[in-house]
Design a protein around this nucleic acid. Sequence first.
DNA 1: CCAGACGTTGTT
DNA 2: GTCTGG
DNA 3: CCAGACGTTGTT
DNA 4: GTCTGG
Length: 225
Amino acid sequence: MTYHEAALLAEELGVPVEELDRAEFRPRYNIAPTDPHYIVRIRDEGRELVAARWGLVNSWAKDASMAARQINARAETLAARPAFREAYQKRRCVVPADGFYEWTGPKSDRQPFWFHRPDGRLLLMAGLYESWQPKPGEWQRTFTIVTTTANELMAPFHDRMPVVLDEEQASRWMFKTTPPETLHRLMEPPPARALIATAVSKRVNSVANDDPSVMTPDPVAPRLL
DNA sequence: CCAGACGTTGTT
DNA sequence: GTCTGG
DNA sequence: CCAGACGTTGTT
DNA sequence: GTCTGG
């Protein structure tokens, strides 16, 4: 996942930056599973942007070992899965990012692509969140990203993709009272026009590279599109 | 009853 | 091959 | 997701 | 916490 402009996130969502820890609120180019990020949730009458780590750790977990295994939740099964059911009912959120990466090609030579909105605006993905207690008195919020069947654009790369929502859909996803039928509709694959793919530097393949260089368009890979 | 899991993606 | 760390 | 490790003893 | 497997 990427998140380029600090101001963009808060401004597009209409949330004051002051609510966040400025030291942590910086551009990101290579957000990996278990990394700190941000989620949007419904709070009283409005939206709220809060910190959360990628990889859902349930409230009953004794350690963070589940985080890496729960970075995604399948739309088809999350309502029934013990690990996601409650969060699905009570803690649906939106994960903002200006894009996400998918890889293709042989395992020995993985080629990354950056998926983002054609208009360059913020991508809103369906998520679930939950908090757990790493130590007595200390709470940590975590989230997972809901995946669905790949659409026409994604199919050449993968058979799954994140649930991508527009503004209207994002609101409905977060509302506590949205009925199950509506939630199911929201989890359908987004239209192909919702995203475009750009081949980027293989530098992104190492999470240690979290700087603008990972976004450099790859001069060879575009023909793979 | 107790113990142990609780999840998804990937693809040669 | 499979697990862990990021 | 990809990259990189994959281990124990000893003890400063 | 709650479900599944034994």
